[in-house]
Design a protein around this nucleic acid. Structure first.
Length: 419
RNA sequence: GUGUCUGUGGUGGAGUGGUUGAACACGCCUGGCUGUGAACCAGGAGAACACCGGUUCAAACCCGGUCAGACACCCCA
């Protein structure tokens, strides 16, 4: 290919095949959220930098946001996440919106990162949020929405797990170890527990000023899969999740801490069990966010799932197989040029009967036309030649069973519908 | 921003200095089949081997630079 103008680094090109995958994900997100009564919404793709400056986490804003000056000189940002927009929109209608607020969204986001496996600069993200309720049961519902999605796409507990933890619990435990001073750094340290070689991790901890005693305590903490029982909040969360029927998907993991600054209580993320990919989704409770953008305090809990990793996971486990790029059910062939009108009429009749129908635009050799029908995955092909025309029938081919039969023309649509 | 690796027809992918007129597979085109989709048979088209420079009698192959991509770190969906 000569003189090809390259795409912008990290952007996505969706050929029909990829579009089919994206739409399949979207359809499952939509039905999963709607099952729980969530309403679809969206915010602007362009926001001011100020919106994120307050709360999103320094790195995400300073280094990973696409920022540019518009013609008026204002600093504009391609949205890197949705939650701040949500907080603002909810705050703006405070008192008007019936509570609880159950909202979901699916749209594009941008982050200026180095593209790599499961990570691009332009991605689609599913956001689900529940505001106005401060309870472990609400947290459990969000986990249940995500579990329902997994079940809907065919990913079971053997393939993906939702791992949870609680920041208040971790705060208390770290305080008991005398590690409250550098909480943020320690959170980061915890987040990296199983991403680093053990020795390197020890060194990292020591460099942070963690004493030997504290290190021993911290390791014990992070190995304690029963730690959640010490938290009433966690117990209530697990109890509610069990009642919701998603216990098989749940797993307690004391190293799950999440990077975003605004989480205050329950945090969770989902991963494939073999640990091949990054987190599929991440979320948690954020009780101060709406207040921080100028509204009254409004507790919330939510999660976000990017389309890239879930797409990889679904494909790895063969869950996205059989998706078709073409919607065509029937291809009407054209036998020879002077029968073109006959072909068009037939196609129009089939469409009127509700069938997704394509016609071949050239009277070339039949085998070409049938190969095309095969290539787009049409189940049926229709042939009208002089013989059929003379007898008032059409030849209906079933590409799947490789059989064909003559059908009275008037009965064609019905014959296809009943096949 | 840091590091590692890679860059060959539409796609995948051999080939690591001289019979390479750049293999092979898929795809595409023509015919075998002048009314029929897999397969099969016979042909055919399609590549300045990312770009620039250097080493050499000789470079897709070695060296340097540039650009692009993948992966990992960082961060995170």
């Amino acid at each position: 290919m000569k003189n090809k103008v390259p795409t912008v680094k990290g952007t996505r090109e969706f050929y029909p095949e990829q579009m089919a995958l994206r739409n399949w994900l979207y359809a499952n997100m939509r039905s999963s959220a709607q099952t729980f009564g969530y309403q679809e919404w969206d915010g602007p793709f362009l926001e001011t930098l100020d919106l994120y400056a307050a709360k999103s986490g320094e790195e995400l804003v300073k280094e990973q946001a696409f920022v540019f000056n518009d013609r008026g000189g204002d600093q504009i940002t391609l949205r890197p996440e949705l939650t701040p927009s949500l907080a603002r929109m909810v705050a703006a209608r405070q008192g008007l919106l019936p509570r609880p607020i159950r909202w979901w969204s699916f749209g594009p986001f941008w982050r200026y990162e180095r593209p790599q496996k499961g990570r691009s600069r332009e991605f689609f993200q599913w956001n689900v949020d529940l505001l106005g309720v401060d309870s472990p049961a609400a947290d459990a519902e969000l986990a249940a929405v995500s579990a329902t999605f997994f079940a809907n796409v065919g990913l079971g507990p053997d393939e993906v797990r939702i791992q949870f933890n609680n920041r208040r619990l971790m705060d208390a435990e770290l305080a008991a170890l005398g590690l409250t001073e550098r909480k943020r750094e320690v959170f980061r340290l915890i987040d990296r527990r199983d991403k680093m070689p053990a020795e390197a991790w020890d060194t990292y901890a020591t460099d942070l000023g963690v004493t030997t005693d504290q290190l021993v305590g911290l390791k014990a903490l992070l190995a304690d899969t029963e730690l959640w029982r010490k938290s009433e909040e966690c117990q209530a969360f697990v109890s509610a999740a069990t009642a919701l029927g998603i216990a098989p998907y749940l797993e307690y993991d004391p190293t799950v801490i999440r990077g975003l600054d605004y989480y205050t209580g329950t945090v969770f993320e989902a991963r494939d069990r073999e640990g091949e990919f990054r987190a599929i989704l991440g979320g948690g409770r954020y009780d101060n966010l709406v207040g921080d953008v100028g509204g009254d305090r409004l507790p919330g809990v939510g999660f976000a799932m990017g389309d890239v990793v879930i797409g990889l996971v679904a494909q790895k486990y063969g869950k996205a197989a059989g998706l078709r790029a073409s919607p065509t059910q029937v291809l009407v062939t054209v036998f020879k040029p002077d029968l073109l009108d006959e072909t068009l009429k037939l196609a129009a009749e089939l469409r009127a009967a509700g069938l997704k129908t394509e016609w071949y635009p050239e009277a070339i050799k039949l085998d070409k036309q049938l190969k095309y029908a095969d290539a787009v995955g049409a189940r049926f092909a229709v042939i009208v030649g002089p013989d059929e025309l003379a007898n008032g029938v059409v030849m209906l081919k079933d590409l799947g069973t490789r059989t064909q039969r003559a059908v009275p023309r008037a009965e064609l649509a019905a014959a296809i519908a009943n096949a």
